[in-house]
Computed example of a mutant assay.
Amino acid sequence: MSFFGKNIKKIRGVKGLSQQAFAELFDLKRATLGAYEEGRSEPKIDTIIKIANYFSTSIDDLLTSELTVNALLQFKDDLTLHADAFHKVEMSSIPLLQGDAIGEYPNLYNNISYIEDLPQIQFPLASSQKFRAYTISNLEMTANDKGLYPGDIVIGEQVLLKDIVSIPEGTVVLILVHDKLMVRHLQVKEDMVFLKAAHKNIAPYKFSLNEVKEVWKICYTILFRLPEFGNPLEEKLNYLEREFRRFKEGF
Rank of each mutant, 00 (worst) to 15 (best):
S2M: 10
G5H: 00
G5C: 04
K6L: 13
K10R: 15
K10V: 02
K15L: 06
G16F: 01
G16V: 06
A21Y: 04
K29E: 11
L33E: 01
L33Q: 02
A35G: 04
E37H: 02
R40I: 03
E42V: 09
D46F: 06
D46H: 11
D46G: 01
T47K: 15
T47N: 11
I51N: 00
A52K: 03
N53L: 01
Y54M: 07
Y54S: 13
F55P: 06
F55D: 01
I59N: 02
I59K: 00
D61R: 11
D61Q: 13
E66P: 05
N70M: 07
L72W: 04
L73Q: 09
Q74T: 05
Q74H: 15
K76L: 05
K76Q: 12
D78I: 12
L79W: 07
L79F: 12
L79K: 11
T80R: 07
T80D: 03
L81S: 09
D84P: 03
A85N: 15
A85C: 12
F86M: 12
H87D: 09
V89S: 10
V89L: 10
M91F: 11
M91C: 03
I94P: 00
P95A: 07
Q98C: 09
D100N: 14
G103Y: 03
G103N: 14
E104H: 09
P106F: 03
N110E: 15
N111R: 08
I112R: 15
I112N: 12
I112S: 13
E116Q: 13
E116D: 11
P119N: 06
P124W: 08
P124F: 07
P124Q: 05
L125F: 10
L125R: 00
A126P: 01
S127M: 12
Q129Y: 04
Q129A: 14
Q129R: 12
K130R: 12
A133H: 08
A133Y: 00
Y134S: 05
N138W: 05
L139T: 08
E140C: 09
M141V: 02
D145K: 13
D145E: 15
D145Y: 10
D145A: 12
K146L: 11
Y149L: 15
D152K: 07
D152H: 03
D152R: 03
Q158E: 09
V159E: 00
D163T: 03
I164C: 03
V165I: 12
V165S: 13
S166D: 14
E169F: 05
D179N: 15
K180T: 10
R184G: 03
H185F: 13
Q187C: 08
Q187K: 14
D191A: 07
V193N: 00
F194H: 14
F194L: 14
L195F: 05
K200C: 02
F207L: 06
N210S: 12
E211M: 11
V212S: 06
V212D: 05
E214Q: 15
E214G: 02
V215N: 06
I222Q: 08
L223E: 14
F224Q: 12
L226W: 05
F229G: 03
G230H: 13
G230F: 14
N231T: 04
E235M: 14
K236H: 10
E249P: 02
G250I: 11
F251L: 11
